[in-house]
C-alpha cells in the first residue's frame, strides 16, 4: 500500500494526526471525519493499520471498539451517514471475529471455518483492486497528461473552397453591380398633389389676362418652394403646348410667358 500516495492528498497536519492515530481501530471523534475521507473505506483503513502497525486482530480491545460505536452514532448526524455505517459494519465484523476466536472450541470435530478467513480473503481481493487502481491513476490521461492535436479547418471543404474563391476583379465587378442596381425595394408613396397643375394653369391664365407678359419667377410663391416651381413649370409647358402662351428666354436666365391669343377662361 502506497501511503505516500494517500497522504499526499491531505494537508501535513492531517498526516501528522494519523501518525498518532492508529494504535488500534479507535479513532478519536475529532479525527473521524478526516479518517472517513482519507481512506476509501473500512477495508482501506484496515489494510493501512495492518501494514503500518502490524495490528493483530487478536489484540483488538473490544471495549474500545464498543466505545467507538457510541461515538460514531453520536457523530452520524453531522457526518456522512453511509460512510460511517460502513465503518461500523467493519468494527462489528472485527468484534465478531475476536469474540468467536476467544470462545473455547467445544470439540475438534466441530471444526468451523476460521472466522478470519473470509475477512482476509476480502482484504486480499480489495488489495488487488486498490493496487491496480493506483496504477490506473498513474496512466497518462487525456487533458491531464497529454493533449489531442487538432487544427480548426475552415468550415468549407477544400474543393468547394476553390469554387468560392474569387479574384479581386470579380469582387470589383460585383460591388459595381450592386451599387448601380436600381433599388427595387424602395417604397414609393403615391400621394395627393398638394398643388394641382390645373389650378396653376388657371392662376397663370388669370395673371396673363392682366399683363400680356410675365416673368416666370414672379409667378412663384416663396412658401410653395420647389414643388411650387415644378407645378408652375408644368403649367407653363402645358399652356405652351396648347398654344396659349409662348415661352421666351432672352439673354437673361429669366423665363417669360407671353400670351399668344386672347385668353378666355374656360
Amino acid at each position: 500500500m502506497n501511503n505516500n500516495y494517500i497522504q499526499s492528498e491531505f494537508p501535513i497536519e492531517v498526516h501528522n494526526h494519523f501518525e498518532v492515530l492508529p494504535d488500534d481501530l479507535f479513532i478519536p471523534p475529532n479525527a473521524l471525519e478526516v479518517c472517513l475521507e482519507s481512506f476509501s473505506g473500512p477495508l482501506d483503513l484496515l489494510l493501512y493499520l495492518i501494514k503500518k502497525d502490524n495490528i493483530n486482530i487478536l489484540d483488538l480491545d473490544i471495549s474500545h471498539i464498543t466505545d467507538q460505536y457510541l461515538e460514531y452514532i453520536e457523530l452520524m448526524d453531522a457526518l456522512k451517514f453511509d460512510l460511517a455505517a460502513d465503518y461500523l459494519v467493519m468494527a462489528a465484523t472485527l468484534a465478531e471475529i475476536k469474540s468467536r476466536l476467544m470462545l473455547p472450541k467445544e470439540s475438534f470435530e466441530d471444526e468451523e471455518e476460521d472466522p478470519r478467513a473470509s475477512l482476509i480473503k476480502r482484504l486480499q481481493d480489495y488489495q488487488r483492486y486498490k493496487t491496480v487502481s493506483e496504477k490506473l491513476s498513474f496512466l497518462p490521461r487525456v487533458d491531464r497528461d497529454f493533449f489531442i492535436a487538432s487544427v480548426s479547418l475552415p468550415k468549407i471543404e477544400h474543393e468547394k473552397n476553390e469554387e468560392t474563391l474569387f479574384t479581386k476583379e470579380e469582387l470589383f465587378e460585383t460591388i459595381k453591380d450592386v451599387l448601380t442596381r436600381p433599388n427595387f425595394k424602395n417604397n414609393h408613396l403615391i400621394d395627393y398633389e398638394e398643388l394641382s397643375t390645373k389650378e396653376r394653369i388657371q392662376i397663370l391664365l388669370s395673371l396673363l389676362k392682366k399683363t400680356n407678359i410675365i416673368s416666370f419667377s414672379k409667378t412663384l410663391k416663396q412658401s410653395e418652394g420647389k414643388k411650387g416651381a415644378v407645378v408652375t413649370l408644368l403649367a407653363s409647358l402645358e399652356l405652351a403646348k396648347e398654344g396659349h402662351v409662348e415661352l421666351v428666354q432672352n439673354n437673361s436666365e429669366e423665363l417669360f410667358l407671353k400670351s399668344l391669343r386672347s385668353i378666355s377662361i374656360e
Partner: peptide
Amino acid sequence: DLNLRSLNDLPDLPELENQEGDIL
C-alpha cells in the same frame, strides 16, 4: 482517454494467491 487500444492494454491485475501473502 487513457491512451489504450483495448482492455488487454490495462496493467495486469495482481494475482490473488501470491499477492500480500504477508497480510495473511
